[in-house]
Write a protein that binds this DNA or RNA. Sequence first.
RNA 1: GGCGGCAUAGCCAAGUGGUAAGGCAGCGGUCUGCAAAACCGUUAUUCUCCGGUUCAAAUCCGGAUGCCGCCUCCA
Length: 487
Amino acid sequence: MSIKIYNTFTGNKEEFKPVEEGRAKLYVCGVTVYDHCHIGHARSAIVFDVIYRYLKAKGLDVVFVKNFTDIDDKILKKANTEGVPWKEVGEKYIRSFKEDMGALNILTPTYEPRATEHIDDMIRLVETLLDKGHAYRVDDDVYFSVESFVGYGRLSNRSLDEMMAGARVDVDDRKRNPLDFALWKGSKEGEPYWETSFGKGRPGWHIECSVMSTKYLGSPFDIHGGGKDLVFPHHENERAQSEAATGVRFVNYWVHNGFVNIEKEKMSKSLGNFLLIKDFMKEYHPEVLRLFFLSTHYRNPVDYTDKSIEDTNNALQRLYYTLERAREAGKGKEASAAPFRAARELEEKFYEAMDDDFNTALALSSVFELSKMVNRMVDEHDESRVPRILYARDVLVTLAQGIGLLLDDVDAFSEKERTRHLSRMGLDAASIEGMIEERVQARKNKDYKKSDEIRDTLAQKGILLQDSPKGTEWRIKSGVTTKGEDR
RNA sequence: GGCGGCAUAGCCAAGUGGUAAGGCAGCGGUCUGCAAAACCGUUAUUCUCCGGUUCAAAUCCGGAUGCCGCCUCCA
């Protein structure tokens, strides 16, 4: 079945028809590297990672480009306040970005171009726009003339007149139209610059994406993605300057992900409610964040709350425990996976959901149904069930991994949960094992009062005990943290 | 002021014409020394409200109310 994608440009879901048969060309606006990434960046990265993975899984040869904006006002400002060379600022945060993406299991794009490595191409594009009369010089700056491009405003669905009516347009007498934007900025004293036929300076923000996308993908290319906030002005401007220069369509499908709020408030530095990816991962497994975001449709806003994350954490644990149980059930038994209809139907449902504009929230329902299916069969303790258990488990894992979930090893997952929890609570495994051993003895002596006391003590520390014929195991009860009081 | 979005159970969240997915939490049961985990059952006769179209509406149309985003750097 074909894939349908919601296109911001038309406002409709459309069947995906790639420019080149069998290929998909995808460009996503990356980050400006002047700070660590927050969970808003993570959402965008995860959404497009899923799209990238899914297009590949559909057999398309995907060329995926994600840029780094490594020359920008904010970077220069940071360099200034920290007293380090601006290039070092970029390097530092590119490194940080890669760490975070690695931890979140974001696949590395085919190309990760940096703005500073494409200055020559940007200069040529500005020259072309000047030649064609779409741009004009004012002192050392070069502006794009929005009135020279007929379709300006069509992507963000607004007309020039409407935008003019907005009171918040920066009025600059030097511009022909207040909405004209900088293609090139003359450099001020002490700022980095490049020599060009139109003066010393550095590129404006929008020009780099036009250059780097078409350089690696051609014109038109298939999908251009980014956060919803980029629709205007960034993508509108990219589109205008690209199409004005080339005379052909720039992008076929515009895809935008919704925003992340924290406790119903927009994340912003001024509100001080930013949550860095690195800080999140101190508290939770990275897949918790991925599962959380994929539980909501990518175009809708999502509200990050401690409770939602706890809920998601429980749900993810459930999936991993299912895998563990399936493994135990199949252990030592000569059995190979046997396909059966009910599991296949869920698999089909999953793909149908994904085909329909990457409906991960709906697709996940199949994953959870499979989890329940596996658990139910495991509970039957019937050896003849094992082949089906293994099959359902395999389907579950394949589907989940297709969207970047359940990629961790089952034991590694549990181990990470324990380690994270213990360090958070300031506990050590040995003392817990000791208490468990003590309790095992008490139980042998049928001293249930004592054994229950030990269990309660551990429970208060967020340690959950599970008795089974094989012995007593412990795991983490979510929601118990030392910082419980400040919540 | 302009443009756009959202409103579904205690909470989160799919569903855009055919009679309400899934997750979390809760409750009852099975299992267990008791628990936990897991499973089974249960929790919205109803989808913010008011009208309309239709054999049929959470879904389409009109109106009202509430919340949010963009219009300025921003994933």
